[in-house]
C-alpha cells in the first residue's frame, strides 16, 4: 500500500498487532474506504489473530466508519482471532453506547489494558 494512503499505523507489541488511526476525523467516504481496506488486509492477507485498534487520535467517527468496524469484527471472529478497541474519547464512546455497539466490541480504557491477556 502506498505510504500516502496509509490511514492506520501498525506495530507489533509482544505478538499483538496494534493499529493506531492517524486521522482525527473518520468521516470522509474515501478515507473510510482506505481505512477499511487497510484494516481488513491485516486479517485477510496477514492473518493476524490478535489486534488492538487504538483510537487515541480520533475525534470524530461517522456511522459509515462504524460499518467498517463491524465488518472488521466479523472478519476477526471468523478466524477465531481477538479484536479489542482502546483509548476512545468520551464523545466517541457515547457514539458506541448509543448504537449499542459497546456490547458487540471489546473496549478497553488504554493500550496497556487492551494488550493485557489478549
Amino acid at each position: 500500500m502506498a505510504a500516502g494512503n496509509r490511514r492506520v499505523d501498525v506495530e507489533e507489541v509482544n505478538g499483538v498487532t496494534v493499529a493506531k488511526f492517524t486521522d482525527k476525523k473518520i468521516l470522509d467516504e474515501g478515507n473510510i474506504q482506505l481505512i477499511g481496506n487497510q484494516l481488513f488486509s491485516l486479517v485477510d492477507e496477514d492473518r493476524r489473530m490478535k489486534i488492538v485498534l487504538d483510537f487515541s487520535n480520533v475525534e470524530y467517527l461517522s456511522s459509515a466508519a462504524l460499518g467498517k468496524l463491524i465488518t472488521m469484527d466479523k472478519k476477526v471472529k471468523s478466524i477465531n482471532g481477538k479484536l479489542r478497541f482502546c483509548s476512545i474519547r468520551s464523545d466517541i464512546l457515547e457514539v458506541f453506547k448509543i448504537t449499542r455497539l459497546d456490547k458487540l466490541f471489546t473496549i478497553k480504557e488504554n493500550q496497556e489494558q487492551a494488550l493485557d491477556g489478549i
Partner: peptide, 18 residues
C-alpha cells in the same frame, strides 16, 4: 432498529439514530 440484537451487525439505521 439498528440496536435490536438481530440488527446489531448490520450497517444501517445508525446514522438516523445518531
Amino acid at each position: 432498529d439498528p440496536t435490536a440484537d438481530e440488527n446489531l451487525e448490520r450497517p444501517c439505521g445508525r446514522g438516523i439514530m445518531l
